[in-house]
């Protein structure tokens, strides 16, 4: 059986003063294997973030089922790591203390935890910055700290909500390579929300394209480009073809009317 299985997940929000609830997710069913990187690609506000929060157990679903390793998720699970759109570091803690926050909550903040935190900081190029305060770091560096914080407790599943969306293009591409590098080393399974077509194709084993709200999966794209991927991958014909396929599914690339 697959590592993660979603079946008929549905989410409705009650609206004050209206009898008909608002459907955020119409229907979502997909599966992913251990070690896979799956992207949820869709227009802003389509409900993909809501779906990620349902997988995380942070919000309740209206219907359907989410099973990770065969277990139904209906509450937060400490074996998951979460990276938000903004770094959300604690300004009163230094970099190392921020990374160790999950270990403190899980009461596992010991020497081994500190060594692992330092190893992660080293892996993300922040070896010199463990004592810096968040406001002294650039946006990209802050998001790398957030990534270390999400990985420090060795989660089985890493959930990322448009983590690089607020970064400039160059930093974003660097972060994409860093994420692939970390995944190769940690064997983490990743569910990644994005609205960038190139980012989704570049990172993923599998891209799920969502419609506008209420979200449903309009296309499931297997990306069989070999890892490790590099800048050269972005300019290959196969990459472009996959981008086109995703663009058509999103409805941003229409066939010209006078096409022959």
């Amino acid at each position: 059986m697959s590592f993660g299985v979603l079946e008929g997940v549905r989410k409705e929000f009650l609206r004050p003063g209206r009898s008909v609830p608002l459907a955020a997710i119409e229907e979502a069913s997909f599966a992913f294997e251990k070690g896979e990187l799956v992207s949820l690609l869709g227009p802003s506000g389509c409900g993909k973030t809501t779906l990620l929060r349902i997988i995380a157990g942070l919000i309740a679903k209206t219907g359907g089922s989410v099973r990770i390793r065969g277990e139904e998720v209906d509450a937060p699970h400490p074996d998951f790591g979460f990276v938000f759109q903004t770094p959300n570091l604690m300004p009163w803690r230094n970099v190392l203390e921020n990374v160790l926050f999950p270990m403190e909550i899980l009461r596992r903040s010991d020497g081994a935890a500190k060594r692992r935190a330092l190893a992660l900081l080293e892996m993300t190029g922040l070896a010199e910055f463990e004592l810096a305060r968040p406001h002294q770091l650039s946006g990209g560096m802050q998001q790398r700290v957030a990534l270390c914080r999400a990985l420090v407790h060795e989660p089985a599943l890493l959930l990322m909500d448009e983590p690089f969306g607020a970064l400039d293009e160059l930093t974003r591409m660097e972060m994409n390579d860093l994420l692939l590098d970390i995944r190769a080393r940690t064997q983490a399974t990743v569910v990644f929300v994005t609205h960038s077509i190139a980012e989704a194709v570049y990172l993923s084993d599998q891209v799920l394209v969502f419609s506008r709200r209420p979200a449903r999966i309009v296309e499931q794209i297997r990306v069989s480009l070999p890892y490790p991927r590099s800048a050269a991958t972005r300019y290959s014909g196969a990459f472009t073809a996959l981008e086109h396929r995703a663009s058509r599914a999103l409805g941003v690339l229409r066939e010209p009317a006078h096409a022959t």
Binding site: P78, N88, L106
Partner: peptide, 9 residues
């Protein structure tokens, strides 16, 4: 931050 804490129970 509250969600992060909650996700770690």
């Amino acid at each position: 931050l509250l969600e992060l804490a909650r996700s770690l129970r």
